[in-house]
Amino acid sequence: MRDYVYAATLIQTTAGVGDFLPRTSAARKLVRDQAVLAHVTVTILITLGVSVVVTALG
């Protein structure tokens, strides 16, 4: 579990996989999916934050 959390945090906070290499196609797919999910999550959080600020000021 500790390795998974490390890898997920590394993928979500950088543009690459850092100091590990996904060797199988399944592992590469998981890394790709994690990167896409991280991008979508951050986009949604920023959108919600902007919406709250605009609503409060409006």
Rank of each mutant, 00 (worst) to 15 (best):
L45S: 08
D19L: 12
V53D: 09
D19I: 11
A26L: 05
P22V: 03
T55C: 07
R32K: 10
Q12M: 14
T41I: 05
K29W: 07
R2V: 14
V31N: 01
R2C: 14
L57A: 12
T14Y: 06
L37D: 00
R28S: 04
A27F: 01
Q34S: 04
G49T: 12
A35T: 01
A7C: 12
M1K: 12
D33L: 03
V42T: 06
V17F: 11
Y4S: 15
Q12S: 15
L37W: 01
V54N: 07
R28F: 04
T41H: 07
T43E: 07
Y6F: 10
A8I: 05
T9K: 14
L10S: 11
A8D: 07
T47K: 11
L21R: 10
G16Y: 13
T41A: 08
D33T: 02
Y4Q: 15
L45I: 09
V17T: 14
G49L: 13
V36N: 03
L10Q: 13
L45R: 08
R32Y: 09
K29M: 07
Q34W: 03
M1I: 09
T13Y: 13
G49F: 14
T55E: 08
D33G: 01
A56P: 02
R23M: 11
A38T: 00
L37N: 01
T43H: 07
S25K: 11
Q34L: 06
F20T: 06
V54Q: 07
R23T: 09
Y4I: 15
T13D: 11
I44S: 03
A26C: 03
V52W: 14
V36T: 05
V40S: 00
L37M: 03
V53W: 12
H39T: 02
V53A: 12
A56H: 10
L57D: 08
A56V: 11
L10P: 01
P22I: 03
I44Y: 04
G16L: 12
L48H: 11
L48T: 10
V36M: 04
T43S: 08
T55Q: 09
L48V: 15
R2K: 15
A27P: 00
T24Q: 04
A35L: 02
A8M: 10
A56R: 09
A38L: 00
M1P: 04
I44G: 00
V53Y: 11
A26E: 04
T24F: 05
L30Q: 03
A8F: 06
L48W: 13
G58V: 14
A15S: 14
A35M: 02
T13A: 13
I44L: 06
A26M: 04
T55R: 12
V50E: 15
G18T: 05
T14C: 06
A26S: 05
L10I: 12
P22C: 03
T24L: 04
Q12I: 13
G49E: 10
F20D: 02
L57S: 11
L37T: 01
Y4L: 15
V42R: 04
V54M: 09
T14S: 10
R23F: 10
L21Y: 11
T9S: 15
G49K: 10
S51W: 15
V17E: 08
A27G: 00
T47M: 14
R32L: 08
I44A: 05
K29T: 06
L37E: 01
V53N: 09
T14K: 07
G16V: 10
